[in-house]
Design a protein around this nucleic acid. Structure first.
Length: 274
DNA sequence: AGTGTATCCTGCAGGC
DNA sequence: TGCCTGCAGGATACAC
């Protein structure tokens, strides 16, 4: 998906638009992107007012005044695009759900591949749902010690561990690959063999990469756009992801692509030995 | 516990 | 131009 930096950018964009607005009605154009009966989804939201917009891991969280939430998992191609008219905003190419707002305008959930999911959660459901996710890597409480503890508890390849939202929330393939390049750790390294020094490097690298990507407004490879339509600029700053065959920016060795866990990883065989 | 595979979808790029 | 294959930011279920 959209990973943490993209979800953060979307949440920030909507935070300037949605709070205070009331949902006049909901149109579910693609039933497979909402969890539960589509009519019920709309009925439960009608007449409610947005209070804030946040993020948890890779999910955009629309908070309503009664403390219920719409949790938006963007899948691979999900977007949230605000627009003026009563129909889908012009920026929306594959509208799946429309939130019509009182006083005019709407917000569209748009998703080409429809891997995304929207779910409405009560306060209690939200608490339970959020507890199942791992810690926020950019939070103050995510310390080097915490990272070390998470790594030492698993012998799965570190790239797989970084993608597991139940252990650390928000990291996807791009930023996992980038962080491992900065930390000079091979993506296949068993997590519990990384050691204290490596764990400290990875902790710093992950936070550094995620922070920089948030500042750049995320990474646009194809579909991703901020709510205002702008592209994320972090693509230009990628050091390993998608750079197969091109020179390592540290040592000029050719970047390699390997596949495991069903997904590509990119690494410098010299900087990131097995 | 971990890993590999398939599945949900559409679009795009590259090879022929 | 068209057809085919492979690939894609994610998550889950299943068998082994």
């Amino acid at each position: 998906m959209p990973e943490l930096p993209e979800a953060e950018t979307i949440a920030r964009g909507l935070a300037g638009v949605l709070p205070g607005r009331v949902i006049r009605g909901v149109t579910v154009l693609r039933e497979d992107v909402v969890s539960g009966p589509p009519l019920q989804f709309g009925a439960e939201l009608r007449g409610k007012r947005f209070s804030e917009v946040g993020r948890r891991g890779k999910n955009v969280v629309l908070v309503l005044e009664d403390a219920t939430r719409v949790v938006v998992n963007l899948g691979m191609t999900g977007r949230l695009v605000p627009g003026p008219g009563p129909g889908a905003p012009p920026a929306s190419t594959h509208p799946a759900v429309l939130f019509h707002l009182e006083g005019g305008g709407c917000v569209a959930y748009d998703d080409v591949r429809r891997f995304g999911r929207l779910r409405r959660l009560s306060r209690a459901e939200w608490t339970r749902w959020s507890r199942r996710l791992g810690p926020e890597p950019l939070s103050r409480s995510f310390t080097g010690r915490r990272m070390r503890a998470i790594l030492s508890a698993s012998r799965s390849p570190v790239r797989s561990l970084l993608l597991d939202q139940h252990r650390i929330a928000g990291t996807g393939n791009i930023y996992a690959v980038e962080a491992l390049w900065f930390a000079r750790i091979h993506p296949r390294t068993p997590a519990n063999e990384i050691g204290d020094v490596g764990a400290a490097r990875l902790h710093r690298a992950l936070r550094r990469v995620l922070r920089a990507a948030v500042s750049a407004g995320g990474t646009t490879l194809r579909n991703y756009r901020a709510p205002d339509g702008t592209e994320g600029l972090f693509r230009r700053r990628l050091h390993a992801y998608g750079r197969e065959g091109r020179p390592c920016l540290r040592c000029r060795t050719r970047i390699e692509r390997i596949v495991f866990g069903g997904r590509s990883a990119f690494l410098c065989p010299r900087c990131q030995p097995c």
